[in-house]
Design a protein around this nucleic acid. Structure first.
Length: 159
DNA sequence: GCCAACGTTGGC
DNA sequence: GCCAACGTTGGC
């Protein structure tokens, strides 16, 4: 069995924010229609940690944390012709798109903007900066720790 | 299999 | 709202 991984998942706060997740508790991460993001979701295991990132926002940045509570299963929106994420190629036997369920864990007392994330040494290799359009991506444990520490406590590099 | 056209994401 | 980046589609 492999070690737990850490993940970053983007959501547009105008559509679904960390506050929405806090209210809802658990949500299905449906609607992903990018193969690389899908493949990362299929690698997720229950209990793995998620950094909830606000994209397309003012400002964009890290807003809180969540946890995977259900591993990948077929995204039902792909089967619904009335849904704008409908995919005519998908069948119940052979779904094309998958989702996981995540549960709210925390909202950061201090939001960490993308600008600030860019300035953090431990994050220099973060995929977010190179693959800006990928909405689901892995974080290293060191990256996770560097972000979560600041979100919880402030901007000091000391603990 | 190449690649131009097109559509979407997301920072600004 | 603009537009660069980049993933997808489809003609050939």
């Amino acid at each position: 069995m492999s070690a737990a991984r850490h993940w970053l998942m983007k959501s547009e706060p105008d559509v679904f924010s960390i506050d929405d997740l806090a209210l809802k508790g658990t949500t299905g991460w449906d609607g992903v229609r990018n193969y690389q993001a899908r493949n990362f979701m299929r690698e997720m295991r229950v209990g793995e940690a998620v950094l909830f990132y606000h994209s397309n926002a003012e400002p964009s940045g890290a807003a809180g944390t969540a946890v995977v509570v259900r591993a990948a299963y077929a995204d039902p929106t792909q089967f619904n012709p009335n849904n704008d994420r409908f995919d005519p190629r998908a069948t119940a036997d052979k779904p094309v798109w998958f989702q996981v369920d995540v549960r709210f864990v925390s909202k950061f007392p201090r939001f960490i903007s993308l600008e600030e994330l860019r300035g953090i040494n431990e994050l220099s290799d973060m995929m977010l900066f190179r693959r800006s359009r990928l909405s689901v991506q892995p974080l290293t444990k060191a990256q996770w720790t560097a972000i979560a520490r600041r979100g919880r406590r402030g901007s000091s590099p000391r603990d």
